[in-house]
Every structure is written in structure tokens, then in C-alpha cells.
Design a protein around this nucleic acid. Structure first.
Length: 487
DNA sequence: AAGATGCTCAACCGCCACGAA
DNA sequence: TTTCGTGGCGGTTGAGCATCT
């Protein structure tokens, strides 16, 4: 007893479309629109079922379809999104203009999946394959929770994202009605997305703004085992297992930060659903503050997070902030050093350079992902001294980084985090690298703040030598992870 | 040169969500 | 509340082509 077919099969053609059929379909849709797909074939004079027509149009004949090879940026985007969304091809396609879900699915199955496997990365979990070492049957014990995407399932993911969106909508309504954000009810609503497995997964795959992570350590940490706070207030004020610091007793639900939280959650949900962030009504009550990175923000259609100047870290001084950055990175990159998802750190640096902002306004810079042309392979390298008092990051061309790595002795890996960056544009070439790296190195050596720009400009050789010395002095070694061989 | 094998991707199939009746 | 029609989605297939033996 089979399911009734979507249309009457008898007499209907199957298989590849001929140019004549394509022309008929295009002509009809251009004149009349597609209307009811079921009725279309008859009206257009086609011996096809409506489903076949719809597929042909959406996957092949639609005028806004982008043809040709996937760019590196597109590849990168697909990998990033797949780490969060799994096989939700339509949601992924929503972030790649002109690409269809079918095309992305095919590309994943025929290219990207194989490439990840060759790199020793499980294309389902986006984590290193333990079975390479013969531990496959032990993996549930060695790495519980690694198979997050398969465990959760796409349906649940989408359901949670929709639920989270609804939470946000309600929160926005309450905000509009009451003009206040600090009610327990609002906090509960905002916590909805955070508490969902989707939120957890999102946080695992995107390094959130470091300052924010300090406020929400339970969500950003892989190894947090404590009970999840049940409200945002609890979360923000929790001193759980030493992970969290109470920032001057301040609340993230102050007006300024409320905007950030809701904006971020909105973006998070839109990512899951393949829609554009709603630019929710929530913002209307606070107005948009122009930040140095606002142009950058507006150009991306991906996860965004803005932390405003406010209670976060200001009175604690820059070192607290840097320690937070380090803690955040250590949580996300400790272990095997093969995480795929370190984009945001690079993005912070890029945004700093783009906007010529100072460390003081670092909190205004968005971590953003998946945009910008690739001209050089870059790695974001960070280091921190043994007392966790000073840290620095910069982007290194890969060849120089490898050269330094070769020179390294086997010193303890106090930290290591790298990422492949697609963030550098033409204006951020080797000169920028030299400027930044020499400046950072100088500051580190003097025990000072992480700078954004500095007066000293070393040539590449000097810069390389300086960094090599500095890295050894702080006992840091870089770790590498190469996403692809793209040049 | 010819058969075997591998790869790509357009197209199909079945399931599901959703809205209308 | 249930049923039905429709569109959308993800998994899978298989024809056509390329490469290997």
C-alpha cells in the first residue's frame, strides 16, 4: 500500500529536461509567474509533473542562480555553517546568494566532505576523528557530546531555533510595552535561546566576543559541568565553579547590553532558519549607536555580536579583558589544536585594523564571520605569558608562521590558537602584518597592553625574528590547522 | 582500444509542515 | 478537529563523462 504519487505519472515525462522544455517553462513563468505548480505543466504545455517543474526552475532555470565553481569564501561559509546547522542545506543556502540547496548539498557530498575526511576531521561532528587511532568503539567514552549534530537532529534544531525566535519576539513586545528589560520574565525569555541545544551548539562553534563569554561562561565552555542557570540574571551573577566573574555586580540587562544580547540572539536564530536577522523592533527603543565597525556589521549576513562600552571590563582594566580572551580561547582550542571554528578571533583583529580603533574601544568591535576575499593564507596567532597577565594576537602569513614553528623548541604549550582567516583584503597585506606584529611584540615584551598600531615598523625579517624570540620567551608555541590548500 | 571504475550533479522520491476547507 | 492539497526539504539515484588499467 504505497503512498499516492504527487501527480498522475502516466504519460508524464521523466529524466533530463530538453532545451525546448526549459524554454517553455521559462516563457510561461516569465509571463504568468509559476502560480500553482500543480497546474503549471498543463498550462505551459509540458508533459511533466508540477514538482519536476518546480525543481527545474528553482535549481536550474531561475535567473538569479550563480553558476560556476564555489569560491573559497563560499567553501568556508559552508563548512562553518555546516558545523552549526548540519545538513540543513536550505538554511545554508540562505546565506549563499545565488546558490541552491541542491548545489550546496552536492558540493558538500562530493568535495568538502572528502576534504575534511582527508584532514582527519569527522564531517558530521567537525571534530578530529578518533577512529583514526583505532578508538572508534571507545569514542562515546572518550568524547561524550562530540556528536552533537547527529545527536540533536535537524528537526529539533529547527524547532528550537523557531522557539528561540518566538522568545525574542515576545521579549521585544514586552520591551515595547514596559520599556524595561530587567524583569525576571524578560530574562527568562532571553534565556530560552541560550538554554536550547541550538544555542549551546552555536556557542561551541562560534567564539563569541570574549567579554561576552566571560558573562556567559557556561554557554561558551566545553567543559562546564555545573547546572545551567535558569534565568539570565542567575547566569550573569553566577560565580559558578570559578568560571564566572561578577562584573561589578552589573547586569547585562542594562539598556545598552540588552540591545547586544537581543541582537546576537536574533542573529543566532536567523542563522538556523536561513533568514536574515530581523533587525528586531527591540532596537528601536535604544536607537542604533554608530560603532567603528558599523560598516563592517552591515556588510555581513552572519552571526553578529556587538558589545558596547559599558559595564564590561572597564573598571577591571585591560588585563582582565585579555585574561578573558585567553580563557575563552583556551577553552575553545585547547587539546588537539584542530578546531575549525576560530574565525572570530581573526575577525576581531581585522575589525580593529579596519577601523583603526584602540584597545579602549575593543568592545565595540564585532566578531563577525565568513566574509572578505582571501589573498593570503593567514593564521591568527595568540600568545600569553606564564602568569596569564599579558596576551597578544596578530595575523601571520602561513609561511612565516611555519618558519617560526620550525624554530621552536618543545616548550610547554601554554596557549595555542590559530585559525585560517579569510578576513584579509588587499589593504591588509604584508605591511599591515609587519606593523601589527612588531607593535604587538614590542608591547608584549614591555608588559603593556595589546596595541592596535605602533610607531615601530620592522621589516619582515626583523619582525619574524622578534616574534620568534618573543614566542619563546613566553613559552608559547603555535598550533596549526589548515582548512584547505586554497591559495 | 576497450572495459572497469570513479566522479559529478541533475533529477527523483518520500516525508513533512502548513494552511485551507 | 480532521482531512486534504501543496510546497519544501533532505536523501538517494543513475546517466553521462572522465580517468584508470
Amino acid at each position: 500500500m504505497g503512498r499516492t504519487p504527487c501527480c498522475e505519472k502516466n504519460g508524464l515525462k521523466k529524466g533530463p529536461w530538453t532545451p525546448e522544455e526549459d524554454q517553455k517553462l521559462v516563457d510561461y513563468i516569465q509571463r504568468h509567474g509559476h502560480g500553482s505548480w500543480r497546474a503549471l505543466p498543463k498550462r505551459a504545455g509540458l508533459l511533466r509533473c508540477g514538482k519536476s517543474c518546480r525543481l527545474r526552475w528553482t535549481n536550474y532555470l531561475r535567473p538569479d542562480i550563480k553558476r560556476g565553481q564555489f569560491s573559497f569564501e563560499e567553501e568556508h561559509t559552508i563548512i562553518e555553517l555546516h558545523a552549526i546547522l548540519g545538513n540543513k542545506w536550505s538554511a545554508i543556502a540562505g546565506h549563499l546568494p545565488g546558490r541552491t540547496d541542491n548545489e550546496i548539498k552536492n558540493f558538500w557530498n562530493t568535495h568538502l566532505k572528502k576534504r575534511l575526511l582527508q584532514m582527519g576531521i569527522d564531517p558530521v561532528t567537525h571534530r578530529p576523528r578518533v577512529d583514526l587511532f583505532g578508538f572508534s568503539n571507545m569514542s562515546p567514552f572518550l568524547a561524550p557530546g562530540l556528536n552533537h549534530m547527529t545527536q540533536w537532529g535537524n528537526a529539533r534544531l529547527e524547532a528550537e531555533a523557531r522557539l528561540a525566535t518566538e522568545y525574542l519576539r515576545q521579549a521585544a513586545m514586552m520591551q515595547a510595552e514596559n520599556g524595561t528589560t530587567a524583569s525576571t520574565r524578560t530574562a527568562d525569555l532571553l534565556m530560552g535561546p541560550w538554554r536550547s541545544q541550538f544555542g549551546d551548539n552555536f556557542c561551541k562553534n562560534y567564539v563569541i566576543d570574549p567579554a561576552w563569554s566571560q558573562q556567559a561562561p557556561a554557554m561558551a565552555s566545553h567543559d562546564y559541568k555545573g547546572p545551567l542557570p535558569q534565568t539570565l540574571e542567575q547566569l550573569l551573577h553566577a560565580q559558578t565553579n570559578g568560571y564566572s566573574s561578577n562584573i561589578n555586580g552589573g547586569s547585562l540587562l542594562s539598556n545598552d547590553n540588552y540591545e547586544s544580547v537581543t541582537k546576537f540572539l536574533d542573529s543566532m536564530c536567523s542563522l538556523a532558519l536561513g533568514t536574515s536577522p530581523s533587525e528586531s523592533q527591540i532596537l528601536q527603543h535604544h536607537g542604533q549607536h554608530a560603532s567603528p565597525s558599523s560598516s563592517l556589521m552591515s556588510s555581513i549576513n552572519g552571526p553578529q555580536m556587538k558589545m558596547k562600552q559599558g559595564s564590561l571590563g572597564q573598571s577591571e582594566g585591560p588585563n582582565l579583558h585579555k585574561q578573558t580572551m585567553f580563557e575563552n580561547r583556551r577553552r575553545n582550542f585547547s587539546g588537539d589544536g584542530t578546531e575549525l571554528n576560530a574565525v572570530c578571533i581573526s575577525n576581531n583583529i581585522k575589525a580593529l585594523y579596519d577601523n583603526n580603533v584602540t584597545d579602549q574601544s575593543y568592545n565595540d568591535v564585532l566578531p563577525c564571520a565568513m566574509q572578505g576575499p582571501v589573498l593570503h593564507r593567514q593564521h591568527n596567532i595568540s600568545c600569553i605569558d606564564r602568569d596569564n597577565q599579558h596576551s597578544a594576537s596578530t595575523l601571520w602569513p602561513e609561511d612565516q608562521l611555519l618558519a617560526v614553528a620550525k624554530e621552536q623548541d618543545s616548550v610547554p604549550a601554554l596557549m595555542s590558537s590559530t585559525s585560517t582567516s579569510n578576513m584579509f583584503s588587499e589593504s591588509h597585506d604584508l605591511n599591515t602584518f609587519v606593523n601589527s606584529s612588531s607593535s604587538v611584540a614590542n608591547t608584549i615584551s614591555q608588559g603593556g597592553d595589546v596595541p592596535v598600531s605602533g610607531p615601530e615598523i620592522l621589516n619582515p625579517e626583523e619582525s619574524k625574528e622578534y616574534w620568534s624570540t618573543m614566542l619563546k620567551s613566553v613559552g608559547a608555541i603555535p598550533a596549526f590547522h589548515v582548512i584547505s590548500t586554497h591559495q
